[in-house]
Amino acid sequence: MIAVLLRDLKLAIRAGGGFGLGLAFFLIVVVLVPLAVGPETATLSLIAPGILWIGALLACLLSLDRIFALDFEDGSLDLMATSPLPLEGVVVMKALAHWITTGLPLTLAAPVLAILLNLPTQAFGWLMISLVLGTPALSMIGAFGAALTVGLKRGGLLLSLLVLPLYVPTLIFGTELIRRGAGDMATTTPLILLAVITLGTLAVLPFAAAAALRINLR
């Protein structure tokens, strides 16, 4: 399993754009929104949690189709499916590799971009926590969507149509956590619920994604 993870990470780094592209996209979204909304800092700090989460969501979506597509084309996915390693384990590792190349850098970069959006200082910690807790769910749900659409020629647009509605609970609890953090309110409820969504996703979706992969590999 570790070998699958390392292989995916190496491929992501060497192919270029693994870390950089998602981050650059995140930066562009965060820069474009103030241009569209206007430079009033009060408005920006109000909508900052939402912009940061939407940016993270879209940046995550950008690289989803690469989770399985390349391995499906060159046949290595068939090898992984027939190997002694359970396909569920492969799915988890691939989702983890996706998270390390997108979710983790996004989380680390988010405070810098939060300054641009004038997010209140007390919310910075909550921003990091909510992204650390939430982005693994984004990768895992995305891996499920990628597994569903792996056999399709032009699955990209369909993938976003399938995956984005599934992101709704994570998005709601993630932004609510930051918003409450910014307003010095009790954060326990959204924190726990966000963690529940992520853990539940990690527990259930590998099986669904592996089932979808097996159907596509038939």
Partner: peptide, 17 residues
């Protein structure tokens, strides 16, 4: 099946929101 779970989750998440 997966969508049903998430639709239900969303149903209660928006109540919270």
């Amino acid at each position: 099946v997966v969508g049903s779970i998430f639709a239900l989750l969303s149903r209660y998440a928006v109540l919270f929101w």
